[in-house]
Amino acid sequence: MFKSSRTVSKVRLLFQRSVSYNLPSIRLLDSLKSTESDLPGLFSNKTINELWYNRGQALVDNLNAQIIKNNVENAPANLEELIKVSFSKNDLNALFTNASLLHNLQFFLESLKTNEDRSFSKAQISALLKTPSTSIKVENAPQDESLAEWINDSFGSMVEFKTLLLNSAASIKGDGTTWLVAQATYSESAMRDGASTGVSFDTLAIVNTYNAGIVDDSMRSGQVTKMKHQKQLKLDAANRRDQERKEMAAGEVQEQGQAVEEVVQETQKRSISADENALGSVEEAEEVMLFSDRKLVPLLAIDASMRAYLEDYGIYGKRQYLENVWHCVDWDVVASRTPKRFKPSMVFEY
């Protein structure tokens, strides 16, 4: 059995050469690699190699191996399509993990530029208790007017946006990525006039993803609800089994059986009447209000995991690293990723 499946996969390997992935090329990093120089203001050459050329290649290799192992036919050439196809499928979990990690990393590195004014060094332990600057001047703010305006409208001001973005990234304990996303609400989009196709993006937001998470709300939440649902199904099944057993026993004594049925009906009635006025849990509210109704499009990613800053900034240097990332963000790339903004003619603040 095992042997035969191996031979099949070998055959498919030959067949599937065309859909295997390569490490995407990032122009800035490629030029730095060829000259063996640092990324000024952010990364040393060693980190670039580790972060992208070693780890990225490893992710690509794993991804290709997973495609072969799972006999995925007609794998889409586009990485995002592959992620969309493979997520929340148990057998393709490893494939999905590698694909999304690669995608997140690429998304982060593609929006970087050099900044000669900044420098990096290993931070001392005193960096933990460092007092933050109270200045409200923001360097390297986006020059693109419409993007800057959108950011100001969504977050209040540039400095508020920067604070929230860097705080969110700094708060991630393990592996994770902080994203700037454009957000649309399906229900609201549908309510607006149907001249435009699809969704209309009206706000920008900041979200975190953890490990191999992707910017997709259906992935990001609902675990608790799902587990509760599964538990309820199990309980229902157990109850049904009990019921059947009782009915079989009750077949001998009819009257008793009827009594049991009445009791069951009574309890069902009671549970239904209790539900009418019940408020419901926080998870249910989140599920309904937040996660199922949103469409998010990523604009900017910041890798907040340790491997990005440990080499150059040391274990206490996360803040310094994030500050440098802010200064090295290429806002032109971000602006080019931005979808068309839907601007309501009237804004109700509530």
Binding site: L164, S171, N208, R220, V224
Partner: peptide, 19 residues
């Protein structure tokens, strides 16, 4: 500034742990 960082951290940590 520090309070903002603290509050963001509390929310993010909770979310991360939930994930």
């Amino acid at each position: 500034q520090l309070r903002m960082a603290e509050e963001t951290e509390a929310a993010v940590t909770r979310e991360e742990a939930t994930m």
